[in-house]
């Protein structure tokens, strides 16, 4: 038996909106730690890892570890029916083939339940090694989204370079080229508006903008994003989910032959 009650139901709605473009079907894993998911996109270029810790739920009951295969588009369709202020409860029976999403309005005058069919998904679980990153850039998530969107109107790939001068996002395309440099600025009024660059070694990597743009669908989840880079390693683009966990996107780099 599984019963997870999330007072801030809008978080789950936002999580689904952030990953449904990248991943079609995925197994949600439920354990005493929390509600999590790990899935690759169909071309195995990107990986998403989601964690919603059990402590972040108002009520968290998970009698034994469960893996529930869901079509994320269908799940998003159901969650769209929840109001932004609704409390969402996820319920499932051990060994059952359905999951129920219950939505309660804040004043308790409207209660809905939506039952969704589960599916069997053969998914590969990957071990993500702990890595020391050469550089970690923390910046406003809206700024990062803006940069990815702007650059994708010029080119298909972005070169992200971190030096002591700052972080540079560059692209080239048929019509020309573009460079955007963001410098560390910790003297802003609000900490979420700061760009903080933590660099051990200069790093420069090339990535497909199409994926970066897809990751920025998670912007509503967090005011800030952190981008962790190491030469020859996938980049990690992390959006923290207030008091609950995170959505992390890993993207393999492109290399020159």
């Amino acid at each position: 038996m599984l019963e997870l009650r999330l007072v801030q139901g809008s978080l789950l709605k936002k999580v689904l909106e952030s990953i449904k473009e990248l991943v079609t079907d995925a197994n949600f894993d439920c354990s005493s730690t929390g509600f999590s998911l790990q899935a690759m996109d169909s071309s195995h270029v990107a990986l998403v890892a989601l964690l919603l810790r059990s402590e972040g739920f108002e009520h968290y009951r998970c009698d034994r570890n469960m893996s529930m295969g869901m079509n994320l588009n269908n799940m998003a369709k159901m969650l769209k029916c929840a109001g932004n202020d609704d409390i969402i409860t996820i319920k499932a029976d051990d060994g059952g083939d359905t999951v129920t999403f219950m939505f309660e309005s804040p004043t308790q005058d409207k209660i809905s339940d939506f039952e969704m069919k589960l599916m069997d998904i053969d998914s590969e679980h990957l071990g993500i090694p702990e890595a020391e990153y050469h550089a970690i850039v923390k910046m406003p998530s809206s700024e990062f989204a803006r940069i990815c969107r702007d650059l994708s109107s010029i080119g298909d790939t972005v070169v992200i370079s971190v030096t002591k001068e700052g972080v540079k996002f560059s692209t080239k395309g048929d019509i020309g080229s573009a460079n955007i440099v963001c410098r560390q600025n910790t003297s802003v009024d609000k900490p979420e508006e700061a760009t903080v660059i933590d660099m051990n070694e200069p790093v420069s990597l090339t990535f497909a903008l199409r994926y970066m743009n897809s990751f920025t669908k998670a912007t509503p989840l967090s005011n800030t994003v952190s981008i962790s880079l190491s030469n020859e390693l996938p980049v990690v683009v992390e959006y923290k989910i207030a008091e609950m966990g995170y959505v992390r996107f890993y993207l393999a780099p492109k290399i020159e032959e």
Binding site: M40, V45, L126, A208, A252, E256
Partner: peptide, 14 residues
């Protein structure tokens, strides 16, 4: 000329 690497080249299957 540029090759897209796969995530599975970095992270082992468990």
């Amino acid at each position: 000329r540029s090759t897209q690497l796969s995530i599975t080249e970095f992270f082992p299957s468990t």
